[in-house]
Simulated scan of single mutants.
Amino acid sequence: MNLKTGIAVSLIPQIILVKWLGNYPGIIEKYYSLGVYPKVSSFFRMMFGWIPFSIGDILYFSLTIVAIIYGYRNRKFIFSNKISFIRDVTMVLSIAYFTFHLMWGFNYYREPLSKKLDLSEAKDYEELVIFTEALISKTNQLQKQLTGDSLLRVEIPYSQNEIFDKTIDGYKELSKQYDFLSYTKPSIKTSFFSTGLTYMGYAGYLNPFTNEGQVNGVLPNFRFPIVTGHEIAHQLGYSAENEANFIGYLVTANSSDLYFQYVAYAYALGYCLSDIRRGDVTVFDKMFDSLHPGVKENFKEMSVFWSKYENPMEPVFKSIFNSFLKANNQSQGIKSYNAVVSLLVAYHKKYPLE
Rank of each mutant, 00 (worst) to 15 (best):
L3G: 13
T5M: 14
G6L: 08
L11Q: 04
V18W: 05
G35M: 00
V36Y: 10
K39Y: 13
R45F: 09
M47H: 04
I51G: 06
I51H: 05
F53N: 05
G56M: 04
L59F: 14
Y60F: 11
Y60P: 04
F61T: 10
I65T: 04
I68N: 00
Y70E: 10
Y72W: 14
N74K: 13
R75G: 10
F85Y: 13
I95P: 08
A96P: 11
Y97D: 04
Y97T: 01
F98Y: 07
F100W: 04
L102H: 10
G105F: 01
F106G: 05
Y108R: 01
Y109E: 00
K116E: 12
S120V: 15
A122W: 07
K123V: 11
Y125L: 11
E126G: 07
E133S: 05
K144G: 09
R153T: 04
E155R: 12
D169G: 13
K172Q: 10
Q177P: 11
Q177C: 08
D179E: 14
F180Q: 02
S182R: 08
Y183H: 01
P186I: 00
K189Q: 04
K189C: 04
M200A: 13
N207D: 13
G213N: 07
V218Q: 15
L219N: 05
R223P: 11
F224I: 06
F224S: 02
E231L: 05
A233P: 03
L236N: 02
A240P: 06
A244D: 09
F246N: 03
G248D: 00
L250M: 04
T252I: 03
A253Y: 12
L258T: 09
F260C: 05
V263I: 10
A266D: 13
Y267P: 08
A268Q: 03
Y271N: 06
C272W: 08
I276A: 07
R278V: 14
D289T: 15
S290F: 08
E297P: 03
M302L: 12
E310I: 11
N311T: 09
P312T: 02
M313Y: 15
M313E: 15
E314W: 08
P315M: 02
K318M: 12
K318I: 13
F321L: 14
F321K: 13
L325Y: 09
K326G: 00
N338H: 12
V340P: 09
A346T: 02
A346P: 01
K350F: 07
K350L: 04
K350P: 07
P352E: 02
